[in-house]
Amino acid sequence: MPKMTPHLFIIILKCTAPFDRTEQSIVPHREYLDLYYKSGHFLASGPLVPRTGGVIIAKAKDK
């Protein structure tokens, strides 16, 4: 069976909670991101400017 080539995805995250609430979750959020970096699924990520969310570039077989 042929090996599937992974697709690249751009994931745009929008914060719906107030900034002071989302700031409290930044450490667990980064730990969660690290799991996917280590698995090779996430290639790059960062906050939006102004800080209203973030962007992740990921690779996967499908959505």
Results as ranks from 00 to 15, higher is better:
P6C: 09
M1R: 13
K14F: 09
R21A: 08
A17G: 04
V49S: 10
D20L: 11
A60W: 01
C15G: 11
L8R: 15
S39K: 11
T22E: 03
K63F: 14
I12R: 14
Y37E: 06
C15F: 14
I12G: 11
P28N: 02
K61Y: 13
M1H: 12
I57R: 01
P28K: 01
K14G: 07
G40W: 02
E23Q: 08
G40Q: 03
F9Q: 02
M1W: 13
I11Y: 06
H41E: 09
Y32R: 09
R30M: 13
S39I: 08
L8P: 08
G54L: 00
Y36M: 08
F9I: 05
E23P: 00
I12S: 14
I11M: 12
I26G: 03
Y32W: 15
G46F: 00
H41C: 07
D34C: 10
M4T: 15
I10T: 15
K61Q: 13
F19A: 12
K14T: 14
Y36T: 03
P50F: 01
S39H: 09
P6L: 08
S25K: 11
S25G: 11
R51F: 06
F19H: 10
I57G: 02
T16D: 07
C15W: 09
I26C: 05
C15Y: 12
F9Y: 14
I12P: 04
L43A: 03
I10D: 13
S45W: 04
Y32D: 07
T22L: 03
R21G: 05
A44H: 07
R51H: 07
P50H: 00
K38F: 05
M1I: 11
M4D: 14
T22A: 03
K63G: 09
I10G: 13
Y37A: 02
I11C: 12
L43P: 01
A58Y: 00
H29T: 07
R30A: 11
P18E: 06
I12Y: 11
K14R: 15
Y37M: 06
I10Y: 13
K38R: 14
S39Y: 06
L48K: 04
G40I: 05
D20M: 09
F19D: 10
R51N: 07
P28Q: 01
T16Y: 06
V27Y: 08
L13F: 10
